[in-house]
Every structure is written in structure tokens, then in C-alpha cells.
Design a protein around this nucleic acid. Structure first.
Lengths: 156, 156
DNA sequence: GTGACTTACTACTAAATTCATAGTAACTGA
DNA sequence: TCAGTTACTATGAATTTAGTAGTAAGTCAC
């Protein structure tokens, strides 16, 4: 499908999702694979270094290099030098990367409902101590997505 | 990564995300690739038939067969016979599949903010006519995800 | 200052997946 | 009977992914 990996390839790929009118497709062009999503998850969990990601995900280093480069290129992560000698870089979330958290929580919420059970990682509000129960609503009406009829308008 | 495609493979894959404590990883085991997500998007848009998906996505039929089977196997779609002769099946969303809509909207919302511009498909509330602006909040506190500190609790 | 260790990779090959095209099965409708 | 429709399967090439090993540029312990 050629969604990720090489920037060069992406720019020249005719079938690229990045130019589609559907914003879901455009987004998936950047993060439409499990590794990228899991890297984003781990980045939100506070991991920043190559080896942290590699150990957490048990991902082949070639894959990790490719994904980190792509996510950096696409503006979800930023490569930052944290040591001049030896030269060492870390990958930190950009604003766009931080804004990705709701997606991860929406996915997690679906998983809790439909793939829950057994031992699961849970998230709590640090202030109130209550478990976080993510719902995606329409800011305007306040209605949870999926509870009301939607009209789709194509461009052009 | 062996996330999808063959059920057999998934069950025997040691590295399978399905058994992880992280619900995000578990979910991604089922829908952690762009094709699956786009099929879900199209299913929500009302597509049900093999050829509708194939034409909409320009996906190779082998891929489509594999993805539809996996999504059906995993309970997001249901295969339903709509004609006895000739034998014809269609794929309709299950409850789990319908519950996936918030994920798609969360992804779309991210895309609108960070990959918007140009001609984009838009969604409106059919009743109020206002454009849908999805926000993922914590049901308990009402706070948008990402605006408050979170405590992660690992199992065990 | 030598040897063990760390970190962030790259090289390389094998395995698996994906893509694209063509073809098939079971019909319908003219 | 013959083109057309729908839902696929077969096949082989191209691409991607995985896994292991190795490298570069240091630090630290003694």
C-alpha cells in the first residue's frame, strides 16, 4: 500500500491517501499501521529514546528507524539532540503528536468494550482518581458520535 | 508483524498483540492497518458489497477478501446472504463494528486539525445541521482527553 | 589506556505480505 | 446464446517486514 516509510515514495505515489478529500484517509497515510500507533502510544507514555521504543515494542531496529523517521517527517515527533558527545537524539511529541492522544483513547475504549477481560492496563484521572472512560462527542450538540444521524458532504 | 489475515496464524503467533494487557494493542491486532480502517469507514458510509468496497478503495481483490474475512472473524462485520441464486453475500456492521465509529471520527478530527486544507469531506448533524466537531472526553469528569494528568495502572 | 558497556543506528538476508492482473463460478437478462 | 454482473480465487512479481549481526562514537571502571 506504500503508506509510510519513505518520504520520496510517498510523494510520488499516485495512489497516495494524503491527497484524498477524506480526512480519515489522509490521517491513515501517516499513522495507518500498528507500529506507528504503538510508537505514539509509547511516546505518550513518556518514552523518548530509540532503545526504549525498541525494547518496549520488540520491533526490529530497521522498522523502528523507518517509523521514527516517518513520524518525525510528518510532524508527530521531533528529533532532539540531548547529548553532543556522544551524539544522542531523542524523539519527543510535537503538538500534533500530543493531539493524537484522543485517537489512542478512542481505540482503547473500543478495546475495553469489545476485547476487554483478563488483565488490562487502566488509566485514571490523576486528580479525581476515577477511571477514565473515553467518549467521543460532538462538541456542538454534546451527543456521542454514533447516536445521531449524520449527513456527509463531499467536496466539489 | 502478522496482525491480521489468517486466523490460524494469529492464534499461534507468540508475539500476538491480542493477548497484551494494553487495550490499544489488542484493538490494533484487529484493525491496525489502513485497509481495515478504510473498510470500516466505508461500511459506516453504507457500503456492504464486495465490489462496492473494491471500487471505492481500489484494493486488490485478494487483499479485500483477506480483510473482510478477518473483520468478519473478529466480529466487526457480519456476512449475510442477500441472494440465494446466485449466491451473494454482503458485509454489514455488527454492534462492535458500529461502536468503531468514534475511532474513525477521532482520527478524522485529528486530520482536520493537522492535515486539513483543500477539499475535504465534511460531516454534519442531520438534525441541527451543524458541522460535527468530535472531541474525546472522559465521561466522568467531562474533561477532554489530554487536558488533565493521567495515572497509568499496569495489571498484576 | 584497555576492555566492557551503552546508545543509536545500518547492512544484509530471509520470510512474509501485498499488488496487479487474469481467470473462474454461478448466475441474469435480452 | 452471449454479454454482463458479482464475488471471488490463482498466480507470480514486487515490496515490505523481520531478525540477526555489526558498526560508530562515545563513556566508565580500574
Amino acid at each position: 500500500m506504500n503508506l509510510v516509510v519513505s518520504h520520496y515514495q510517498k510523494d510520488t505515489d499516485m495512489k497516495n491517501l494524503s491527497n484524498q478529500p477524506c480526512l480519515i484517509a489522509r490521517s491513515l497515510a501517516l499513522v495507518g499501521d500498528a507500529w506507528s500507533m504503538l510508537i505514539m502510544r509509547d511516546a505518550h507514555a513518556g518514552l523518548t529514546r530509540f532503545d526504549e521504543f525498541r525494547k518496549s515494542l520488540q520491533i526490529a531496529p530497521t522498522m523502528l528507524t523507518a517509523r521514527l523517521s516517518a513520524l518525525t517527517e510528518d510532524g508527530l515527533l521531533e528529533k532532539r539532540r540531548y547529548s553532543e558527545r556522544p551524539p544522542r537524539d531523542e524523539y519527543v511529541l510535537t503538538e500534533a503528536g500530543r493531539d493524537f492522544l484522543p485517537v489512542l483513547f478512542a481505540i482503547g475504549a473500543w478495546g475495553r468494550k469489545h476485547r476487554g477481560g483478563g488483565e488490562v492496563t487502566r488509566f485514571f484521572d490523576a486528580e479525581t482518581g476515577t477511571e477514565i472512560d473515553p467518549v467521543t462527542i460532538d462538541r456542538e450538540t454534546g451527543a456521542p458520535v454514533g447516536t445521531r444521524a449524520i449527513r456527509t458532504v463531499l467536496p466539489g
